[in-house]
Nucleic acid binder design. Structure first.
Length: 888
RNA sequence: GCUCGCGUAGCCCAACGGCAGAGGCACCAGUCUCAGAAGCUGGUCAGUGGAGGUUCGAAUCCUCCCCCGAGCACCA
């Protein structure tokens, strides 16, 4: 820093006398001093401490806590600045605001950094050190932005005082049969030697971290039974009216509830039965084949009975599909299959149909088996055409018939049942229920519901996470660690390299333990929990962050919850936000909290983007290494717009900007950049506009100070006041209205800031030197209101100006201004006059004009008379106080 | 392929169905000149992606199409 903050100046000491009458010099806008001073002042007075305003309504403002990845860029800042502006606004609105911050501090990057350091420097940096170092840096950055939190409630998910309760939560889920172990196929990265979450696998089936192909592996893992909550998670979306629709739509798709029917086909030989899932039971009589997913257990059983040649063909096909699975099976393209060499029996006709394995049947949807109805399902149609299965029409379109021989695609719409025995002539929507009933009667199927939502795989073969608190005992099986022994402390180690199991497995002192039940030697679980478990309940821990004997204090949770406003990125729509809803519902069910939904309002802010440069040789390179479209190495770079990120190396550091322009300018620009829910492009050159505006505000108030001494904060009467001052007064109240509505109506800070800019322009237009005492009062009011309205956006400057206006700090203890509706009303208005919809002139009329008066004024206007040229208007449309349109 | 969102000046963005322009950047002119990559004052610039429709009147509502973005996608 070029300037050292005022470390040596006693806190709270003003640079100049707080009595502006004693100031003979005009002060410069020294933003560095001002910002340092007020940041210290807020810390000292604990401005953001929650609970200090008993009797006031509560407001829980929450910003998604960050992963401590290193340093923050200006794109991250948007999130915190929006949250901070809201928190400060709500304080001024008289709420007792809770605005906490913490760290999503477990996770793979810290571990990888340790491994990388060990590789390149021969010495591993412990993930804890790495994480704590990053937290220190980021906390300082947040502070420098002027963003305030109730830091006394700070939490870090890697702290034993926190993860003790993450483990406790696991035990509660286990106790309620919502945590369980099962063997299942999982994503495995051979290079990273670990299981990956679905979201860590790229669309092309590669590992997001190392780009090697992810394989499917059967492993026994821990799961949370979130599917048990599928219906509630889906149904309760209806109550989340204050959530962005795109997020609820994504959750709906993610849960993927589908109503349909299970239908059982017996094998022609043997006892095996095969269950298919369908939403079109009405087409059952059109089945000409049945296919199962290549991974279906029946495939192996059938293979066992096949000839070697057939078996080889089948095995190769299955292997091919498995490989494809990770590269994503081609969407809607060619369909392939292999016969399983057996027939199954149609449950209603008793006729045999062939059973095949096909790539378009997915093991993880429905039952992994599909009945093939080529006439009425496009995929089945393509498959039947390719392999020569018959096409049987069973639904006739209204007023028409289908010819199986000449059909070019499946008929998937509604119609009437045909070729369906006793169900003929029924409308198919009715037939569907009838056929399902018939199946149920014969115990060969019935109505059912499937979900796309899978149980949540929470175990990870990683070091840097909360250890799963269970013990394996040869006598007693899986034994939960007793609550009294929590937390299960994550032991230190120096080797974080993954070897196919958690590095914890190599820590003998950790693994070896005693069974809490029989006291025989036993071993601990060595997997750790998915970090999404940590973040699924952190908003509750903020409420009782230091509680040692309880996960949280129920009364306090019931006071502060739900979160009134949650702010974060939309990328968490189907993960963190669903997990948090699930955990909250669980805690409700075990009667620990009385809320079923954690976040009553959600705001998903847009991302900040910037140019990213890719060198063909060096990959993504920072802008500092690019000149004239070429990388420092001489190669031409490819420049694309991407969201700011570490990986694309296009993040803009806030420090140089804060140093040059001040935190208030950076904040103002960030809020002004565009509609907050939309993505925006960071343009450093545009910052100057926000900077200039702040100087203009500063100048305006400075100039006003000598003139507003002793003036009241509000003019007592506007009697005899010149128009220019009346205009300012009007603008002041219109701006209060506008800014308040823009913030409350959806965080439209961009237009709120623009409104204040208009106000300042209006103030500059009036020459207050010529006005009397009433004008001075108008000016004082304008200065005070401008300062108050800007306070949430540029808090440091606002505090300083507030003090200079002779007011006691803090401005955030001050009530948000209210507007005087009468003062907003224009006295004289200009009304546009159209002839046949085209603008011809304007007429000036008094604001209280009646429709008749307005009509007369318009018709009397010389321009209108000329335009009409003696014609009689056919119609005159008068929009009260807004417009006149004369139709001839 | 399906769903949603967006498209306004050289650029970023405003505009209850009623004068297309609030604000900012850039540009031009004038002015002042060390408070800010200078400041200040004033100014130039589009007819709203395209085609239809509803209406006295459409950037705004409806239909179709185009572009960009996001989400979902062999979901039976």
């Amino acid at each position: 820093m070029l300037f050292s903050p005022l470390d040596s100046v006693p806190l709270g000491t003003p640079f100049f006398s707080t009595d502006p009458r004693l100031n003979t010099t005009t002060r410069k806008y020294e933003f560095r001093q001002i910002e340092a001073r007020w940041q210290q002042q807020w810390d000292r007075t604990a401005l953001f401490r929650a609970g200090g305003r008993p009797g006031k309504p509560k407001f829980y403002a929450l910003v998604m806590f960050p992963y401590p990845s290193g340093t923050l860029h200006v794109g991250h800042g948007r999130n915190y600045i929006i949250g901070d502006a809201l928190a400060r606004f709500k304080m001024m609105k008289g709420f007792d605001v809770l605005t906490p911050m913490g760290w999503d501090a477990f996770g793979l990057p810290a571990e990888n950094a340790a491994i990388e350091a060990a590789r390149s420097e021969g010495q591993a940096v412990h993930p804890r050190e790495y994480t704590l170092r990053n937290i220190r840096v980021m906390k300082k950055q947040i502070h420098a932005w002027g963003v305030g939190y109730d830091w006394e409630r700070e939490i870090a998910s890697c702290h034993p005082g926190y993860y003790k309760w993450t483990q406790w939560l696991f035990l509660k889920l286990l106790e309620n049969k919502l945590a369980y172990r099962k063997m299942a196929p999982v994503n495995w990265c051979p290079a990273c030697q670990t299981v990956l979450a679905n979201e860590q696998v790229e669309d092309d089936g590669t590992c997001e971290r190392c780009s090697s192909a992810v394989v499917s592996k059967n492993l026994e893992q821990w799961y949370f039974r979130i599917t048990k909550y599928a219906d509630r998670l889906l149904d309760d979306l209806d109550g989340l009216e204050e959530w962005p629709e795109r997020v609820t739509v994504m959750q709906e798709a993610w849960i993927g509830r589908t109503e349909g029917a299970d239908i059982v086909f017996r094998m022609e030989t043997g006892e095996e039965r095969i269950k298919v899932f369908t939403t079109r039971a009405d087409t059952l009589f059109g089945v000409t084949f049945v296919v199962v997913a290549p991974e279906h257990p029946l495939v192996a059983k059938c293979a066992a009975k096949m000839s070697d040649a057939e078996k080889k063909k089948l095995t190769e096909f299955v292997a091919k599909c498995r490989a494809q699975k990770s590269i994503q099976r081609t969407a809607a393209g060619d369909k392939e299959g292999v016969s399983l060499g057996v027939n199954v029996i149609h449950p209603l006709t008793g006729k045999p149909v062939p059973l095949w394995a096909a790539d378009y049947a997915l093991m993880d949807f429905g039952t992994g088996a599909v009945m093939g109805v080529p006439a009425h399902d496009q995929r089945d149609f393509l498959f039947a055409k390719k392999y020569g299965f018959p096409i049987k029409v069973v639904i006739a379109p209204k007023g028409g018939a289908l010819d199986a021989a000449t059909m070019e695609k499946a008929y998937e719409d509604e119609g009437v049942q045909v070729n369906s025995d006793e169900f003929d002539n029924l409308p198919n929507n009715f037939g569907r229920a009838k056929i399902t009933e018939a199946l149920e009667d014969r115990e060969l199927g019935g109505p059912t519901i499937t979900y796309r939502l899978r149980d949540w795989l929470i175990s990870r073969q990683r070091y840097w996470g909360a250890p799963i608190p269970v013990i394996y005992c040869a006598n007693c099986g899986v034994v939960p660690v007793p609550e009294s022994e929590l937390p299960v402390i994550l032991p230190d180690t120096s080797d974080f390299k993954p070897k196919g199991q958690s590095p914890l497995a190599a820590v003998e002192s950790f693994v070896k333990t005693i069974c809490p039940v029989c006291e025989d030697p036993a071993r601990r679980e060595t997997d750790t929990m998915d970090t999404f478990v940590d973040s699924a309940w952190y908003f509750l821990r903020y409420i009782s962050p230091r509680s040692e004997d309880k996960v949280f204090v129920a009364d306090d949770v019931n006071h502060w919850m739900p979160v009134d406003q949650y702010i974060g990125g939309a990328e968490h729509a189907t993960k963190h936000l669903i997990y948090s809803r699930f955990i909250t519902k669980f805690l409700y069910d075990i009667e620990l909290a009385n809320i079923e939904e954690p976040f009553s309002r959600l705001f998903a802010q847009g991302l900040i983007c910037a140019d990213a440069h890719k060198c063909p040789e060096h990959g993504w390179v920072p802008e500092t290494e690019v000149k004239d479209g070429k990388h420092a190495c001489g190669q031409p770079v490819l420049t694309e717009l991407h969201k700011m990120s570490k990986s694309k190396r296009n993040g803009m550091a806030p420090e140089p900007l804060i140093e040059q322009y001040g935190a208030d300018t950076v904040r103002l620009y960030t809020l002004f950049i565009g509609p907050p829910e939309r993505d925006a492009v960071w343009a450093t050159k545009d910052i100057i506009g926000s900077h200039r505006f702040l100087y203009r505000v500063w100048d305006t108030v400075q100039e006003a100070l000598p003139r507003i001494q002793g003036a009241p904060s509000k003019p007592e009467s506007l009697q005899g006041l010149a128009d220019e001052f009346r205009a300012v007064r009007r603008k002041v109240h219109q701006t209060i209205k506008k800014v308040t509505e823009e913030i409350e109506g959806g965080f439209k800070f961009n237009t709120a800031v623009a409104a204040v800019m208009e106000l300042v322009n209006e103030m500059k237009r009036a020459d207050f030197q010529t006005g009397g005492p009433a004008a001075a009062a108008v000016l004082r009011e304008a200065c005070e209101i401008t300062t108050l309205l800007l306070a949430p956006f540029v808090p440091h400057m606002a505090e300083e100006l507030w003090e200079m206006l002779g007011k006691p700090p803090s401005i955030f203890e001050q009530a948000w201004p209210t507007f005087d509706a009468a003062a907003c009303v224009e006295e004289e208005i200009e009304i546009p006059v159209q002839v046949n919809g085209k603008l011809r002139t304007r007429v000036k009329v008094s604001a209280g004009v009646s429709d008749d008066q307005l009509r007369e004024a318009a018709l009397a206007d010389p321009r209108v008379v000329e335009e009409l040229a003696g014609r009689t208007p056919r119609n005159v449309i008068v929009v009260s106080k807004r417009l006149v349109n004369i139709v001839v």
